[in-house]
Amino acid sequence: MSKIKYFLKQSWLLIICSFCFGLLIAVVNAACLDRIEKNKIEKLNSLMSGLMPKAEQFEKAESFTIKTTQGKEFESNIYKAIGSGGVVDGWAFNCQGPGFQDKIELVVSVDKVFARFNGFAILASNETPGFGDRIKNSFYRNQYIGAPAGELQLVKTGNTETIDSKIVAISGATVSSKSVLNIINSNVRQIKAKMIDKGLLSNGK
């Protein structure tokens, strides 16, 4: 009994403070939770509407479990872009995979039959500043706009203006360029197959 008393005597302040602080965190968290969720959605929406300026609204259509090239699984959300008059304008989805140093998370957008890309945007990346992070630049990103949504190839030199499946790598950041390309290739393939399975996309007929 005296042991418990001793214990309480030593640590009452700690116990009371733990409760108070716990309460404080709970209150702050409850107050901010909605805003945090809203921020996330807003960021995704603004990126997606940057890729598909014609779309008026985005609707979450489906979510699939996708494997990265490293064999890790993650959840990919597919958004349906709805243009004026309620027609489906295209699709957008988030995907991720290994980059040069850390994982890269992207939003990729394709047209409504999965035939051509509308481009991609970067959700989160941690590439080397000044080299790998140039995957954010228009030189690299613009090459994806209009490219056929099949297997893309990376080339060292070539014309960046022509719209084809050849993507010119950023000099000094070949690995990062390749990572983005691989992520997009592997994800589009998997997602396309799953979309067809679900009947959201006709089988090319």
Partner: peptide, 18 residues
């Protein structure tokens, strides 16, 4: 440490929100 960790969590939540 308990005090500091609590306030850091609060800052973290605020930053995420605003």
């Amino acid at each position: 440490t308990l005090t500091i960790a609590t306030f850091v969590t609060i800052v973290d939540i605020f930053l995420k929100a605003f």
